[in-house]
Design a protein around this nucleic acid. Structure first.
Lengths: 340, 340
DNA sequence: ATATTTAAGTAGATCGATGCAATACTTTTC
DNA sequence: GAAAAGTATTGCATCGATCTACTTAAATAT
């Protein structure tokens, strides 16, 4: 319980605190003999480096913040794990918060992170995030914020999937199947990612024979299985029977599969299902799920690189980086044929 | 970029730094008029509370650490999210690390957290974690460590599912189906959770007509879908055809479903499949997966409560808390009948 | 009118590592 | 042999909030 400080170490090693501090940081100005003596003293006394003290003096914390919505969605879990890995590799520790797509909660978490003096924040913005409230919290300390997977401002760095391209690729595939109609189900209504996916789908379907009505999916739900089930139920109960159901994400698709079966409809046979993200599970489902891979690990890597650059040089112009998606065609759409 | 400190605030408000500090902490010794003046100055200057400075003085950090293996498994994701929630509710921020079931990585993360002066650590120990190396890191600062879901020492607090009971309940259900043989697939070989689940299964099968050979599953794999696929492949390739395959976890079961189908075996018809955890997906699979719910949210809540108690009073005896599991019978076992 | 209590506020040391400026102590140079 | 150059080391102010001990002013008691 008796805290060992650098002072104690230096006294035990017969040097000054300054010298011990230099040893700690591996200065070349200290000869082997001395630094060995200091290190030995540290080991013997059970010295623990106090990062808070160092951070306060150097006014940086070697800590990064990450706010995501919900890691029970494996897509976000993958993003999170890779960001943690990249942060650790760069010598940073990671503070996390889960906003659960709630801007209030997100604001609290941002505030905490700012108070904790984080050097940078990865923000996967909650649905409906606006620039002003975020700036109000963040600008007081001028912490750089990187927008992850969704954006709400052109003034801040952003890394995410190329959602428009993803939508286009998926739309072209769906129309090549000969489907006559498609709907989009689920996802956070007020998010750039969803807006972009719709835009991609619309441009991809343009000129094809597929009727895609984005307004159909206006009354949306959440970005999880429950949202998928509800979404399908709502559409089918309206008497609308699309040839292809496009899920906002694989997490949503899981609920769509379940709800279809509750109604004795078999995905991939009675109705095609396609989705975005391509989490590991997509391939393991029956039928395997057609999905546009959006590579959370690549996004996370790029995001870490970009945020660390920004920390080094805050004068850079806002950067945007889009990760190219890849369509993974599987049985949930491959076997499509018109209903009899 | 010009940092605003309490000094600046107090000067602007025409009081001393001490008074401003008292206002910050809502002391009743300061009358409304004064504290309003101080708060106004804070808002006007854009003051940001510096937790590091406060923490150093008070020698506590209001930060907790959480190390888990891999949140792509929704079970751990649920645990993590609930712990974050409980920590925030209690005014703590959360530092996280993902060990990926690697003790080396875990050691680094523990070290970082100790240096960050965390007030307590939730540790979901990586496979093969031993007491000595953990103590070597942690004892220097006497941070309390709570073992989460797996344990390696009786000397530290522990919260987890009642794995033995879970195994027993599952075994009784499987034997009630009339199965003649069962195997366990997947999971971290050197972990208390797996050992206990085996023990529970063995005692549950004792006296029944089910042949359950734990040694069969000795050469185990990882705690994810890939591990499930490999595990099934290995068992079936040995020419062993069990009536029931018990997955270490739902994540593993997902891989088992996939591998069975690759071999034209239908889970729930050609072979029963059962599992542990009961993540949300279990119910949505086809066939819905029989699983023993282990309630990560309850575990997390209890763990948070226990760790906070320990922080308050370190003299308490080591506590153990087991969360009662519940068997959820679904079609993956319900429809079992002897192979023809 | 004085003593006592309470309220309101403050000075200054403190937490532990950092890093500048300065000082010992060698070694080299002229 | 003194000056210069280099090496090894140190003293001390600093980061920003906290908190004990103290002062002053006002209210209440005797």
């Amino acid at each position: 319980m008796n805290k060992v400080t650098l002072n104690d170490v230096s006294r035990a090693a017969g040097v000054s605190r300054s010298t011990a501090s230099l040893v700690l940081r591996g200065s070349s100005r200290i000869p082997e003999a001395t630094s060995d003596r200091v290190r030995l003293a540290m080991a013997e006394l059970g010295y623990v480096y106090n990062r808070h003290a160092a951070n306060m003096r150097r006014s940086q914390s070697m800590t990064l913040g990450l706010i995501v919505t919900d890691i029970r969605n494996p897509y976000f879990a993958g993003l999170t794990m890779t960001i943690e890995e990249a942060a650790h590799e760069a010598g940073y520790t990671l503070l996390v918060g889960y906003s659960r797509d709630d801007v209030e909660r997100q604001a609290l978490q941002l505030e905490t992170m700012v108070q904790q003096q984080v050097d940078g924040i990865f923000l996967l913005p909650a649905e409906g995030t606006e620039l002003a409230p975020v700036c109000q919290i963040v600008d007081r300390s001028s912490v750089p914020v990187l927008q992850l997977a969704r954006y709400f401002s052109e003034e801040m760095d952003y890394v995410g999937p190329d959602n428009i391209l993803a939508g286009q690729r998926l739309a072209r595939h769906v129309s090549s199947l000969g489907a006559a109609s498609a709907v989009l189900i689920g996802g956070p209504e007020y998010s750039s990612a969803r807006t972009e996916r719709i835009k991609g789908l619309e441009t991809g379907f343009a000129g094809s024979s597929v009727a895609f009505d984005a307004s159909l999916s206006a009354a949306t739900t959440t970005n999880n299985a429950a949202g998928g089930s509800e979404g399908v139920a709502r559409v089918l109960d309206q008497g609308i029977w699309p040839d292809c159901i496009i899920a906002y994400s694989d997490a949503v698709a899981l609920g769509i599969y379940a709800e279809l079966r509750r109604r004795n409809l078999e995905p991939g046979r009675d109705v095609s299902v396609a989705s975005f993200d391509d989490i590991a599970m997509a391939e393991l489902l029956l039928p395997p799920l057609t999905s546009v891979a959006t590579y959370p690990e690549l996004i996370a890597r790029k995001a870490a690189e970009m945020l660390l650059n920004r920390i080094r040089d805050s004068s850079l112009d806002p950067q945007r980086s889009l990760i190219e998606p890849a369509l993974k065609i599987r049985a949930s759409t491959a076997q499509w044929r018109p209903r009899t």
